[in-house]
């Protein structure tokens, strides 16, 4: 049991409560003010009625929803298959880059080259190269569906980023942990699997979740290969109706998709921070 707080402590707590209440009020009021001003400025603009009709038409939005949703299902599939593949490929590349010894030099070089290359090229260019280049080779068994090719391009690009995230995590585990594991007779593989990776994963989970949020919207880029996803569906609808509302609908759907992951990412980062500095003020 804590002893009864002194008068000094009670007055400190009262002051903190008062200050917290005042800050909340100020924040609330200024947000509201900003929203009202923004609303007034936009709606009083001379072009607003036309913009409202072409971008925010409720009837067009409602009519376009089913097709855009069925397109979004394709994006979700790419996200799922791509996300899992990115984790696997990224981890493999990261592990390759951490191999020691001259025997693995060619592999290491290959992995480094891959990361340098694919972190440098814009995703849209990879999409074009893979999406139109692979089929043009005319090889037997080469996939031609934009879904498969788009997923390959996304995995190629994102794995390069994720590999670096994993590598940073692996290197953040103190070398003494490796020494302890090896001194117990664990092999390099066992050390990685049982000692290093579990600790590394904990460190990098927030960063990985952030990359996942980015991936969620980038799956919309497979539309450039002609896959009928949410973006492409919206594009077709816009072409038919000369109304841009379907784009807004597709955009909002992507935002809705991203919000849960963003919140999860926040929560995980916050938890990691708390674990690292429990009790500290800063």
């Amino acid at each position: 049991m804590l002893p009864e707080p002194s008068a000094l402590e009670l007055s400190r707590r009262a002051w903190r409560r008062r200050r917290a209440r005042r800050s909340t009020l100020v924040a609330l009021a200024s947000t509201l003010l900003f929203a009202v001003v923004a609303y007034l400025v936009v709606t009083s603009a001379p072009g607003w009625p036309r913009v409202q009709a072409t971008f925010f038409s409720p009837s067009v939005a409602w009519e376009s929803l089913p097709e855009i949703l069925s397109g979004l299902w394709l994006n979700l599939q790419v996200l799922l298959v791509g996300g899992v593949s990115v984790l696997a490929v990224g981890l493999l590349v990261a592990l390759t880059r951490t191999l020691r010894g001259a025997a693995f030099a060619p592999l290491r070089l290959l992995a480094t080259g891959y990361v340098d290359l694919f972190r440098g090229i814009p995703l849209i260019i990879v999409l074009y190269l893979v999406g139109f280049g692979f089929p043009a080779l005319g090889l037997q068994g080469m996939p031609t569906s934009p879904f498969v090719l788009g997923t390959i391009a996304i995995v190629l690009t994102y794995s390069a980023y994720v590999a670096e995230v994993f590598r940073a995590g692996i290197e953040s585990v103190h070398p003494s942990q490796r020494a302890a594991a090896r001194s117990l007779g664990l092999t390099h593989r066992q050390t990685m699997r049982i000692v290093v990776l579990p600790q590394a994963l904990r460190t990098v989970t927030p960063a990985l979740l952030n990359d996942f949020v980015a991936l969620q919207k980038d799956v919309g880029l497979i539309s450039v290969l002609g896959a009928i996803d949410a973006v492409r569906s919206a594009q077709i609808l816009v072409g038919q109706s000369f109304n841009f509302t379907p784009y807004v609908v597709a955009g909002l759907l992507f935002v809705l998709l991203a919000i849960p992951s963003a919140r999860i990412a926040d929560a995980v980062s916050a938890r990691a921070r708390r674990r690292q500095q429990s009790g500290s003020l800063l």
Binding site: S176, Q177, A180, R182, S183, L184, G185
Partner: peptide, 17 residues
């Protein structure tokens, strides 16, 4: 690895997992 299995090491900084 085979040899290290036959030795035990304790470090200054414990190095528990």
């Amino acid at each position: 690895d085979q040899v290290r299995r036959r030795m035990g090491v304790v470090f200054q900084a414990y190095n528990l997992f």
